[in-house]
Nucleic acid binder design. Structure first.
Length: 451
DNA sequence: TCTGGGGTCCTAGGACCC
DNA sequence: TCTGGGGTCCTAGGACCC
């Protein structure tokens, strides 16, 4: 597994495009009174500027830095070039963000073997190619036997570094490290672990699984027990389906005018609706997020009878949710989101199959009366590129047997297969139009007993 | 006049169903 | 008379990531 991380990405793009910034401290992020730092160039880091620091503090530490609000189109374009370069190596590339990705080298075609020297040379050439296609951006690469180890390794020689962790040396590498280096272990988990005497991975290793689950809960406890032992078999998932779409903003001054708050929700709802439509998605759960003057953060949500991508429906629902909150002290952040995403094809199935008259109390559900009957024109639906392979859908493959959809997109479907004897098995990717890949249906959907 | 914006995943409790 | 258990869906909040 290979993990690639572009160094100080946003700042590096700015320095590339504006030569006068090269060699100088550059800070990209919110430039307003309530902004925070997204990325600081290494020159700015020398003055103690860090990601997530308030821009106010960054200005105090490094007043002569260039403070920029960011050009996301340029970042996206550059990111795309990098991801394409990675996909030329292996079909199994999983972007984690604009500046990070995993590459499954076991699926790389032009890699003769996975020996240490071979992989090291390959990764060096990859770094050179990234430098080329980005017009001079450096990347740090980590290689190891799992996602976890690759990710840890890419952090060890930053910037512009390469670390390959030889198989069998993982646990010795991890033991002296602080638990906070483990992805998923943030400040709250570090504090909980500190209270039970755990500071390093070596300490973590000594805690039983039961104890860890008691301290951190099921999911986190189990996964940390495994990671402490360098056990990690998570596959590369090339394309994940979006699960939610949201828009939020923090305002320079706290807002109190309820008409103004409602107007903001209306505009944000239109933004969300446009993005949903652009991706061919709709969702059933509308939520708002409200951060009050004292930073307490509230969320409220409402699940509709059927998915929507309609701006007016989202806005009406969002405004109703806000009406039940006390915002008299002032609001510093307001946001709208839609979750429970489905595609238009499912939407159509839903609304044509489940039409059982009006809801009991129409005032409970602002959409019950107005919700239109989804997409009528099949040609139009086709244009919207429906998502044919919803995650979790059962499928079968002529060669590999039965499984379920792990992810899909860009014409590729990733399937996790299950065998009766071994349980969850390997993950494989296929072209979405692979004739050997079939949607799978239960043998007799009508038979389940009616109790 | 500390503390962004876009996400994901998990937990816990209550409603509801069988 | 006493007292289920499993499962799903929904809501709110929190931790975490880049």
């Amino acid at each position: 597994m290979l993990h690639l991380d572009l160094d100080a990405f946003f700042a590096a793009v700015e320095q590339r495009d504006k030569p006068s910034l090269r060699g100088k401290p550059v800070v990209v992020g919110g430039v307003g009174g309530r902004g925070v730092v997204a990325t600081a160039s290494y020159e700015a880091r020398a003055f103690g500027v860090r990601s997530a620091m308030s821009t106010r503090e960054a200005r105090a530490r490094c007043p002569h830095a260039a403070f920029l609000s960011g050009r996301f189109d340029a970042y996206r374009t550059t990111s795309r070039a990098v991801m394409e370069t990675l996909r030329a190596c292996s079909p199994l590339v999983e972007p984690l963000s604009l500046d990070e990705a995993f590459v499954d080298l076991a699926a790389a075609e032009d890699l003769p073997d996975l020996e240490l020297d071979t992989v090291t040379g390959y990764a060096e050439r990859l770094r050179a190619r990234v430098l080329e296609v980005t017009g001079g951006l450096t990347a740090s690469i980590g290689v190891g036997t799992s996602k976890f180890i690759a990710k840890i390794a890419s952090d060890l020689d930053k910037p512009d570094g390469l670390v390959v962790v030889p198989p069998g040396t993982e646990r010795d590498l991890l033991r002296p490290m602080r638990v906070g280096v483990i992805p998923g272990v943030g400040p709250a988990t570090v504090e909980r672990l500190r209270r039970v005497g755990v500071h390093t991975v070596a300490d973590l290793e000594r805690i039983s699984r039961d104890e860890l689950v008691r301290v951190l809960g099921q999911a986190h406890g189990q996964s940390l027990h495994a990671l402490a032992r360098a056990e990690d078999d998570r596959p590369v998932v090339p394309e994940r389906e979006a699960k939610s779409v949201s828009v939020e903003a923090t305002y320079e001054h706290d807002l109190t005018d309820r008409r103004q708050l409602a107007a903001i929700l209306t505009r944000q709802s239109a933004d969300v609706a446009r993005r949903l439509a652009g991706s061919g998605l709709s969702g059933r759960t509308v939520s708002i997020k409200v951060r009050l003057y004292d930073f307490t953060t509230l969320s409220r949500s409402s699940t509709l009878a059927s998915p929507t991508e309609d701006a007016a429906t989202i806005a009406r629902t969002a405004r109703t949710l806000l009406e039940n909150l006390d915002t008299s002290g002032g609001v510093r952040l307001l946001g709208v989101g839609v979750a429970g995403l489905a595609d238009w094809v499912q939407d159509e199935l839903f609304t044509t199959g489940d039409d059982d008259g009006p809801a009991d109390d129409p005032t409970d559900d602002p959409t019950a009366l107005e919700e239109p009957a989804a997409v009528e024109d099949p040609a139009e639906a086709g244009v919207r590129a429906p998502r044919l392979w919803p995650p979790g859908a059962d499928v079968e493959h002529t060669e590999h047997g039965r499984g379920w959809v792990w992810g899909s997109g860009r014409g590729v479907v990733t399937v996790r297969f299950e065998t009766a004897t071994t349980g969850p098995g390997p993950v494989r990717s296929f072209p979405a139009d692979d004739p050997d890949l079939h949607r799978w249906r239960p043998p007799d959907p009508a038979s389940p007993q009616s109790h």
